[in-house]
């Protein structure tokens, strides 16, 4: 794409400075979060000396660990499902002649963005409860389904943004060379689309991790996620235990990603 040889066309005045500022701002609260996970006191904002006690408490607390693991399981499922259906939908609604119902599809896909969470939450509470009563199944499936649904627009929009204006000449060339539609998609379209899919999947993942209200209303017995576990504490007092578990998750993330990069680098 020719960006490597250009030496200064890619820089715009002030952009790098603002970008670095943005990174600093992003990490400032995270630093305090990590610092307070080592708080010896009982509070999330009153320093009581350095201590690892909250790590010990979190380590011994199966409820908070279970909640963290549950959050991750739901987020993985939801982002995979949401990104898959969103990729298909983006392919179906971009780069083709306008067709009847296209606007309808667009509106439907973006609908979860348009109402506050509490509304979807109440609607799902009523709907899923009757399904739970009718089927007797009350597993994590409902939460995964609900999360997948509200993650769809977050995955769809970046993929669509990537797809729009991505020209079709490569795909046409492939088709001219008798590639099947699947081969064309697999070897041409998907690789070109990948940055969009990656962006969409990452958004879907963090959006699922964040969700509080819908989860609070859809969850069954024993299905607290980390956010609903915290919501329950909000009214009374939060303890640095959640800081500890969040820090542990962050470290885990960074480790996995680093390992991933080292492995792929060796291979490449």
């Amino acid at each position: 794409m020719g960006k490597n040889r250009a030496f200064d066309v890619t820089t715009l005045p002030g952009f790098t400075a603002i970008a670095i500022l943005a990174f600093v701002l992003l990490y400032a609260p995270i630093v305090t979060l990590v610092v307070y996970s080592f708080n010896g006191g009982n509070s999330v904002n009153l320093w009581g000396g350095f201590s690892l006690k909250w790590y010990k408490i979190a380590w011994e607390n199966e409820a908070v660990q279970g909640a963290a693991v549950r959050s991750l399981i739901i987020a993985v499922w939801a982002s995979v499902i949401a990104t898959s259906v969103a990729t298909l939908a983006a392919l179906g609604t971009t780069r083709r002649k306008r067709f009847r119902g296209q606007t309808f599809i667009y509106v439907m896909i973006n609908q979860p963005l348009m109402v506050p969470e509490i509304v979807t939450a109440v609607a799902l509470l009523i709907f899923f409860s009757s399904v739970k009563l009718a089927t007797g199944y009350s597993g994590l499936g409902y939460l995964i389904l609900a999360h997948s649904a509200f993650c769809v627009p977050f995955a769809y929009l970046p993929i669509r943004a990537r797809l729009e204006g991505m020209d079709t000449s490569m795909e046409i060339a492939a088709a001219d060379l008798y590639a099947t539609p699947w081969q064309t998609f697999r070897h041409i379209t998907l690789p070109l689309l990948m940055p969009g899919v990656l962006a969409g999947a990452m958004l879907a993942f963090v959006i699922s991790l964040d969700d509080v209200i819908i989860t609070e209303f859809v969850k069954s017995a024993g299905q607290d996620t980390l956010p609903t576990y915290m919501l329950g504490q909000l009214r009374r007092a939060l303890t640095p235990e959640v800081n500890a578990i969040s820090t542990a998750l962050l470290v885990l993330t960074v480790l996995i990603l680093t390992a991933f990069f080292i492995i792929t680098k060796k291979r490449g």
Binding site: I30, M202, D210, P227, L234
Partner: peptide, 11 residues
């Protein structure tokens, strides 16, 4: 995205 691996409330 790493800061967002914590959740909304804790952020």
């Amino acid at each position: 995205t790493i800061p967002f691996w914590t959740n909304l409330l804790i952020r």
